[in-house]
Design a protein around this nucleic acid. Structure first.
Lengths: 209, 209
DNA sequence: GGCTTCGGACTGAACGTTCATTCCGAGACG
DNA sequence: CGTCTCGGAATGAACGTTCAGTCCGAAGCC
């Protein structure tokens, strides 16, 4: 079936094939972000994407798979944004700031992606995924997992407080996500200088004094 | 709601009336915490509470009202736990620590309440509620809202960084909630000394240096 | 080139299931 | 024996999923 690799994707030749798939994924992100997984019917996704209800099943076997594949795409975009021009050899402080600022900008500029990710990680899917990742990480040799590494490096060098790395990550990420959420909901307005100040504040939580 | 004070609640005379109501509320808290609002059918709530499906409607007009009244009860318990023996006249630092430690202990010891609150505040209900509260607070003269006051006091006294109070609150609450969640999910274990250290770390994020 | 045939992406009405809510007979209490 | 609460079957709406048919561009034929 996939033998033919001559010049086109598995569907038509017009090269426009994934147009509908993309529309479906986009609609899923937006609606799940706004309303949550269980509150967004497939019919609503189809309507927002401008396709027939049945067409979704041409691209995704069922709702659960649609959610998982959508997550994979959002997740990839997020990692890409975070790692883009990551100063791999800079100081811990600079790498931390890069992470924090990239992340907060990405969330603020892509509120639907942000909302989708929050919904996903709060769901049983996301929790199971984290459990798997944790297992995997315990068995395999250390991989790169940038933030996790950064924290461990900071602790080892005596820069950061001696706490379980996951606690550091929770404080940073918890604060970051909460602040981004307030901005998106319109309860505060965060510009770049303000985000820098917040990044510094969260750094103070990590650092020994 | 509390108008009729003659001698009995609106139901029977057996004085056992709120027994079932309580079971329903408890089941709602647990199931919503575990599964989310839209993924917990009324029939499941009835089964967990050990009552017939129809009996819920004897106490709550519909699902939405059930959720709201359940929230009101959980919310009251939470505030009560936070304000219990609150050292109203102690230093800002001491009051902060009281708040942080009470809150984290409460969340950890009442994971269902914690899960329910998170679900509620993430839902459109919770967001609408916050919007209302914010309006109300802007118009009315300052009320007590302990944490909000504490932050403003800290900023005014030069102890805390000059940031919108809501940002301070987000950093603290975001971190607190994230950390409690990791504990409940079993990814870290937090005892009292560790929580004290975390409270101190979050304080560092607030404080000027 | 015009006409016909063909294949498969696409649609939306239809299906079986599950949900929130209603209803009614059974029983408890006075 | 009337009143009132309860449980769970009944009801209608809404859901995820399917499928019989539509549509359209490409290929075959004259």
């Amino acid at each position: 079936m996939a033998a033919n690799a001559s010049m086109s994707e598995p569907f038509s030749m017009t090269q426009t094939e994934p147009e509908k798939r993309r529309a479906i994924v986009r609609a899923t992100i937006e609606l799940v972000a706004e309303r949550g997984f269980h509150a967004t019917p497939m019919s609503m996704i189809a309507a927002r994407a401008g396709v027939g209800a049945g067409s979704i099943y041409r691209y995704f076997a069922d709702k659960e798979i649609l959610i998982h594949e959508t997550f994979a795409e959002v997740s990839a975009r997020t990692h890409e944004a975070m790692l883009d021009s990551y100063p791999r050899d800079a100081s811990i402080r600079r790498r931390y700031e890069h992470f924090f600022l990239r992340m907060s900008h990405f969330f603020i500029e892509h509120p639907s992606d942000f909302g989708f990710l929050r919904q996903y990680f709060d769901s049983p899917f996301g929790i199971a995924l984290r459990r798997d990742k944790m297992m995997e990480q315990e068995c395999r040799g250390r991989d790169d997992e940038s933030l996790s590494c950064l924290i461990e490096e900071g602790i080892a060098s005596g820069l950061f407080k001696k706490l379980p790395p996951l606690v550091h990550i929770s404080i940073i990420f918890g604060g970051l996500v909460a602040v981004a959420r307030e901005h998106i909901l319109g309860f505060v307005t965060l510009d770049t200088p303000m985000l820098q100040i917040i990044a510094d504040a969260c750094w103070d939580a990590l650092a020994r004094h």
